Simulated scan of single mutants.
Amino acid sequence: MTLDGQAVLDWREAKAETQAKEREIVATLDKQAVAEVEQRDTGVLMSCRGERMYSWAGGTRVTMADSSQAQPAIEKLAARWGSEPSHSIKTRTDLAGHLAITVLPAEGGSYLAGLIRDGELIQFYCFSRCFELPEGTWPGGSF
């Protein structure tokens, strides 16, 4: 079965696919500049489009060895993933004046990266491509 020309996922597959892509994006950061990477084990389901359609949402927090390198790291991510033919990038400036980006792979999903704690940390928010939640499955709680 397919949805939008792609194999239909269940929430476990959506989560695994999304976390793998998030790790791939984080791995492009300069390893010497990163002090710690903390990927959440669980996420939530968010309504996606239409009845019973959901997206798995999770995130990763990256602590830089030197917080002054966090903004340049976001800029490098934008340049790196913006040059990828199978991805597009949206950029914006947050309320604190920092660059925030959204990486949009052609296969679906979205990966937002921005600064938190006065620019000390990079927070990634990730959202899987849409999938249908089986009848009888409650979308609340942790997944």
Rank of each mutant, 00 (worst) to 15 (best):
G97S: 07
T63S: 15
T137N: 12
T18N: 13
I122D: 06
K15E: 01
V34P: 03
W81F: 04
S68C: 03
E36R: 14
Q71D: 07
R49K: 11
A113I: 08
A57K: 05
L112K: 15
R23M: 04
D10H: 04
T91N: 03
S68T: 15
T2C: 05
Q123P: 01
H98V: 02
K31V: 06
D4M: 10
Q6H: 12
T137D: 06
L115N: 05
E17V: 12
T60A: 00
G136D: 04
H98Q: 13
T60L: 06
A57L: 08
E120T: 14
V62I: 05
P72S: 01
M53C: 10
S83K: 14
M64V: 01
D41Y: 00
Y125C: 07
W56M: 04
E135Q: 10
G141I: 03
Q6N: 10
A33H: 02
E36A: 09
E13I: 03
G141P: 01
Q69K: 10
P72D: 02
G109C: 05
G50W: 06
W81A: 08
S88F: 00
D41S: 07
T2I: 03
E17A: 14
G141W: 00
L95M: 10
T42Q: 10
I101L: 12
R129F: 02
F127N: 08
A106Q: 12
C130G: 13
G59E: 11
W138C: 12
A100V: 03
R23I: 03
V37W: 00
T42N: 11
V26A: 07
K15H: 05
A7Q: 06
A35F: 09
G58Y: 09
V62T: 01
I122K: 05
A35P: 09
L104D: 05
Y125R: 15
S86N: 13
Y111W: 13
R49V: 08
F127Y: 09
A65K: 08
G140P: 01
S47K: 15
H98G: 11
E120K: 13
A14R: 02
T42R: 14
G5K: 06
